[in-house]
């Protein structure tokens, strides 16, 4: 068995790379949920982002257009969700599920023409430092800009929610839309924007998969990561910093499992696949034992429609 510090650095790097889409999608969904909206369409928005990013990369040849186009596609599809749930006051759960089904279907349809085409190389930053420091170098250097953005995002999100006025407004809308409305806040507008932001981040998460992680288009390529991202938001008890920890754990499960296989240790793979959900349920059970904790962490109006006209 190899216990080399560089080797551990490599494993951590792999885990971080696999955590990127989870962090992006979860941080986006966290803002949406903090405003009181439960959008179960994460998987659908991610897959739309994946095909849009890939298709634009092939068609326009520009990575910048592709990345922003994927985010825009996420925004567009989440606009449908926002319109249905906020303007037409439909049920959040049903609409979110429909969004996922719609996303998977339409991405497969658009994607038919992009199967079997290799993607482009995505530029990586600080490549020359890659071997400078043992252990730390592979972790810190030689990644795409999306990678660095993803690891900054939980901290930015945390700052946004705790220290900025708009962040406080988002939380107020999620915790008590009626009071917020009485204070003159346009609840519907805030929720619209939070949904669109969530869509943009899910789109980016999908684009990371199809453009950087495994640069190609394959149907269903998000492979359930959207559901894991949703579980992650609950696991984190709506705390962005804990999303970072959770994404490393959830993203690392398969990688650790593969490494253990390669050295001859066996864990049933089905168990590991189920683990993120099991852990999430345990976290739910633990927090629901303490009513104070629920009150403090769960957005009180999560998933409830806001009827009052502003």
């Amino acid at each position: 068995m190899i216990v080399d510090i560089n080797f551990i650095g490599l494993i951590i790097t792999s885990i971080m790379a696999s955590a990127v889409p989870l962090i992006l999608a979860s941080c986006g969904e966290l803002i949406t949920e903090r405003s009181g909206v439960l959008n179960l369409g994460v998987e659908g928005m991610m897959i739309i982002g994946a095909i849009s990013g890939f298709a634009l990369m092939i068609v326009t040849g520009s990575l910048v257009i592709a990345v922003f186009g994927a985010m825009l596609a996420g925004v567009l599809i989440s606009t449908i969700f926002a319109f249905l749930t906020q303007t037409l006051i439909t049920n959040h759960v049903a609409t979110g599920l429909a969004l996922t089904i719609f996303g998977i279907g339409i991405s497969a349809m658009i994607g038919k023409n992009f199967v079997g085409i290799p993607g482009k190389d995505f530029p990586i930053l600080f490549e020359s430092f890659k071997d400078a420091i043992p252990f730390l170098s592979p972790i810190l250097f030689g990644h795409s800009i999306v990678f660095y953005f993803a690891f900054a995002l939980p901290f930015l999100t945390n700052y946004f929610l705790k220290k900025t006025k708009i962040g406080l407004i988002v939380r107020a809308v999620g915790d008590s839309p009626d009071s917020a409305s009485n204070q003159g806040i346009n609840v519907r507008l805030v929720r619209y924007l939070c949904i669109l932001y969530g869509g943009a981040m899910c789109g980016l998460a999908g684009a990371y998969l199809s453009m950087i992680y495994t640069p190609q288009w394959i149907e269903n390529m998000t492979g359930g990561r959207g559901w894991i991202a949703l579980a992650l938001v609950v696991f984190s008890t709506w705390n962005p910093i804990k999303i970072l920890v959770g994404a490393m754990i959830f993203g690392g499960l398969t990688i650790i499992q593969f490494h253990m296989q390669a050295v001859g240790v066996r864990i049933p793979v089905q168990f590991l696949t189920a683990l993120p959900y099991i852990v999430t349920i345990i976290v739910l059970v633990v927090i629901s034992r303490d009513s104070r904790k629920i009150r403090l962490s769960t957005p009180s109006s999560l998933g409830k429609s806001f009827y009052k006209d502003n």
Partner: peptide, 26 residues
């Protein structure tokens, strides 16, 4: 020959992770 079972026929993300693990293992 080092074998890693991915328990999937196609899942690019998982397959990539399996390949990385094998490469890291030499």
């Amino acid at each position: 020959t080092k074998i890693v079972w991915a328990f999937t026929w196609y899942d690019p993300g998982k397959e990539a992770e399996a390949a990385k693990a094998l490469i890291d293992q030499g």
